[in-house]
Amino acid sequence: MNIPRNQRFHSWLPFYTLLQKEVRRFIRVASQTLVTPVITASLYLFIFGATLGERIQLLEGFSYAQFVIPGLILMGVINNSFSNVASSLFMSRYLGNIVDLLVTPVTPAQFILAYTLAAMIRGLAVGIIVWLISGLFATLPWAHPFAVVLMALLASFLFAQFGIIAAIHADNFDSLAMYTNFIILPLIYLGGVFYPISILPPFWAGLSHLNPLFYLIDGFRYALLGVGDLPFALSFGLAFALAVCLFGWAAHLINKSHRLRN
């Protein structure tokens, strides 16, 4: 046996490998990671697009299906970006195989980028499939296509960061589930997926302005339909600022926190 020692180090190979592993991980369990969220979204589409939706009109000039589809697409993007990184990273910590990564030359930036990008790919894949299926119920005008892409990318990035934070802070499965059940779900449902904030009484409308999801959903709906409760620049600006803050927090956890390298 002869150990070959002359080997070249490829600085970004650790990143590509981790990204590839993360993407292959969710594809391997596609029935849970892609099919289930698409079925859930399709059920919503069926209920609000084909049944109830025909009896509701909230926005002048648009059917209820058209109103609700942007929110449902974004809901798929958000949920799946979050879940991908939260479950993968938490499981790695829980099972202990995270040490296999911690002993390698993967930099903190590569670590965050790989997990984030894989989460964004899953979130956006679900979003695209939901959008394709939504074509059965309504067509969307795609008023500002560039802004559509921008908001979807921003939403998936933001929730990937939140997923990293949750995975590193959670100590057990219950606390991880709490992030989904007590933070993400209420924020989504109260963030204007199913109704415009403008129809709420002033107090609840004011409270909804504290919900970061409101800005993402409103901005995304504006980009797709051309109408929204807020100017697009404000929605995008606030969501962007929040994404930067969460990225900083996630970076701190990966880089300095004792929770990962205790």
Binding site: Q7, R8, F9, H10, S11, L13, P14, Y16, T17, L18, Q20, D100, L101, T104, P105, V106
Partner: peptide
Amino acid sequence: HAGYYGIP
């Protein structure tokens, strides 16, 4: 694992 170490 080889990839994480930057080795093809």
